[in-house]
Write a protein that binds this DNA or RNA. Structure first.
Lengths: 147, 147
DNA sequence: CTAATTAAAGACAAATTTATCCTTAATTAT
DNA sequence: ATAATTAAGGATAAATTTGTCTTTAATTAG
């Protein structure tokens, strides 16, 4: 569904939301290890998420690293998709028709629409914080490895 | 969601299901024009759909072209995804976790699961014929251009 | 102030997807 | 048989995505 870049972005964001804070920043090494993603590529992605501090914030130097401000944790996960320029995926026609719409629907439009709406609702109502909390509670996982 | 190749495959399949038959084959030129896709790339995709006559059938020479046998029209659209090797998209974890499952769910698993199930149901219950019929009825469209 | 640490930025490389083109093979009509 | 038509197949190219590496800039600790 999403690109690898966006998958990594979602994992990194939720991981940071759970583990980091303004006082406890986390380095790229630890992040890439935790979410099992290629280190340099993940760095690029975090850089993108850091643009204008839109999703992630960062600080250089010793004790530096990445973190997610409390204010951002309260935002819907959808902001990650926006920052990665992949929020359109949730909107577009399954068959790739440019003109697909209510008045000119593709053959799958009517049924896909309701599914699409649930997807959009999911990403716009669940906050980053809410997802991170579940990891804290131990009911879900973000690591991609056995350990 | 799907690759361009699969989007073209879905459009071409439904177009052929509506317009073609064993007696009335359709050439690549007409197909690419109808679904507004790059001609040579579409040829490659049809070639793939033709492997083992799994979805599309073809005949060379004058009056040759592509068509979909009646038997295939009764199959679910899912067969197109399978032929394009993209049926996994419906199954995989939204966050890209290899180990995501009921017993080791990602933070979005529980909610995404129900959406995923609807997607799978849609593609496994709707037949190629059913979607083509709607075009015939004029309630939906497959062409990607104004005309 | 200096050295160490860490992210930012940009150039580069590999892999995959998308797309084109040319030759070959099969079929049909004459 | 021959010529015309059409898909099959393979080589190639362009674009995008994924990934790496090296240098620079900022910050902090000593």
């Amino acid at each position: 569904m999403f690109s690898k870049a966006t998958e990594y972005a979602l994992r990194a964001t939720i991981f940071l939301a759970q583990k980091s804070s303004e006082e406890k920043k986390i380095g790229i090494e630890e992040i890439a290890l935790a979410i099992d993603s290629p280190r340099p590529f993940t760095a690029k992605i975090l850089q993108q998420l850091t643009r204008d501090n839109k999703v992630v914030s960062s600080a250089r130097g010793p004790q530096g690293g990445f973190f997610i401000p409390v204010k951002v944790k309260k935002l819907p996960v959808h902001v990650v998709l926006e920052a990665m320029n992949e929020d359109e995926i949730l909107e577009k026609c399954v068959m790739g028709l440019k003109l697909c719409s209510e008045t000119r629907p593709c053959p799958l439009h009517a049924q896909y629409k309701t599914i699409k709406n649930q997807l959009i609702t999911l990403f716009t109502t669940k906050t980053i914080q809410q997802l991170a909390d579940e990891i804290q509670d131990g009911v879900v996982f973000i690591r991609n490895k056995k350990s």
